[in-house]
Amino acid sequence: MIYVQMLLSFLQIGLFSFGGGYAALPLIDSQIVKLHGWLTMTEFTDVLTISQMTPGPIAINAATFVGMRIAGAAGALAATLGCILPSTVVAIVLAKIYYKYREMSVMKGVMNGLRPAVVAMIASAGLSIMIQALWADGVVSFAADKMDFIAAAIFIASLIVLRIFKPNQIIVMAAAGVIGGAAYLLL
């Protein structure tokens, strides 16, 4: 029963969270914390913190975390499945429509309008990650005590390496983790 409940709860979270991980937060809050009481507010905040520290979408992380703590591995599976089921179905339907009508002039127009917007939204997401990485309190300032110079150095070095040598990005991120981690611990 708990498995069905979890599946249904996360099905709603998956179905109604449009536009990126943070859109899922109020839904997770209302379903998981307020409605079912599967997490306390403190645990919910912890899930967010850990989600920042582990790879993957917040909704998936929350689903796995809640499922695991409330009903073990089977619970985690049910919650995660619920979370991805709606998007899987909707995405496949939209993809079918896109590939069927992509040669139509209206569809081409829509996509011509969307492409530059997508670039802009990726840029916007990148900007918030950059601000978060370089300024601990989220306010852009070049004062010596406000800016994280280790992060700034890693950011600039990574960008130069990426632009010039075009290496595998995963290697750059892993190297930044090792070098940056050592710098934070030692300096």
């Binding site: 997401a125 990485a133 280790i150 990426l162 991120m173 983790g177």
Partner: peptide, 20 residues
Amino acid sequence: VSAVLKGMQAAVAAVILDVV
């Protein structure tokens, strides 16, 4: 863990900017 992740976050920003 948090030191390594802080280092990685700066590189993640660079990865996104590169593609943008």
